[in-house]
Design a protein around this nucleic acid. Structure first.
Length: 276
DNA sequence: TAACAGGGACGTA
DNA sequence: TACGTCCCTGTT
């Protein structure tokens, strides 16, 4: 195991921020994540975090996955002191990290996310993993499933994923799988692109609109300048930034701030008693 | 029981 | 730019 003191790192916030659909809360402080062929359990103890894996796997995979080299204190430090709302949001969700997740997995996950809520997105993804993902075993001998490869979904009929409860999104996912498996959409090429180029390319996929493209850019390609606008963010913008969100001021880190706002709107307003 | 909305996008006008 | 439609499910 690897035990570290980490500032601006909070598993509950990362899990609750809704960017990773395969991270689960096991108990109060214990979480599990599946990424690629990796399975990890980790535990938060105050500002210490325990990663239950060996040193090699931590340095070879999880350290980057959780963006532990990112300087989130400096992002927060850029917030205008007189912007009370944004400071509150960053105070509330300052332990969020923008994870570096798999591109294909994010494409599918956010195709599924449209007109959908988080609990059901999780179930849909679990369903397709169990049905079409590789069956693997963790260190304790427990079975888990990897995210399905594009090739595993490309051969399906367009409505095949209705059985996994994807609804009308089934055809989006199967068509995207065909594009990737057939070479028309080159994941590695997109991974090397700038934000603008990658966004443009993602929009060519059937079922990917601007919001979904931005989510993929942010959570898979780590384009921190991506600023996904969904109904929650739009609402927050109308209330707190009537003259527009100062994107120029925050050029290059808009996505981090978006996550603070999103999490604050989703989880913070309730525990704060509706105070914003 | 029925109606509705929930982290949208597409096709048509 | 605007609006109906797509499918499922938890909530009211």
């Amino acid at each position: 195991m690897v035990k570290l003191v980490l500032e601006n790192f909070d598993l509950a916030q990362i899990c609750g921020s809704g960017q990773c659909f395969r991270m689960k809360e096991r108990t109060e402080s214990l979480y599990s994540v599946i990424a690629g062929r990796h399975y990890l359990e980790l535990e938060q103890q105050g500002n210490e975090c325990v990663f239950y894996c060996d040193d090699a796997e931590f340095h070879g995979f999880w350290k980057e996955y959780f963006d532990l080299e990112g300087d989130y204190a400096s992002y927060i430090g850029k917030i205008a002191p007189n912007d009370i709302y944004l400071n509150n949001a960053a105070e509330f969700g300052g332990g969020i990290r923008i994870l570096r997740q798999d591109l294909w997995e994010m494409i599918v996950s956010f195709l599924i996310s449209q007109q959908n809520h988080i609990a059901r997105i999780r179930r849909c993804i679990e369903n397709i993993c169990v049905s079409y993902g590789e069956r693997l075993v963790n260190a304790r001998g427990e079975v888990f499933y990897a995210f399905p490869e594009p090739q595993s979904l490309a051969g399906l009929k367009e409505d095949a994923l209705m059985e996994c409860n994807l609804g009308y999104r089934s055809k989006y996912v199967v068509r995207a799988a065909k594009c990737v498996a057939g070479g028309a959409f080159d994941l590695e090429e997109v991974a090397r692109m700038s934000y603008g180029e990658a966004r443009e390319k993602l929009l060519t996929l059937f079922g990917v609109g601007e919001k979904v493209a931005d989510c993929i850019c942010l959570f898979a390609l780590h384009k921190l300048e991506a600023f996904p606008v969904d109904t929650h963010i739009r609402q927050a913008m109308q209330i707190h930034y009537k003259r527009g969100f100062p994107r120029r001021r925050y050029q290059g880190i808009e996505g981090v701030l978006q996550q603070y706002i999103f999490y604050y709107e989703l989880a913070g307003t309730r525990s704060a008693g509706g105070r914003k």
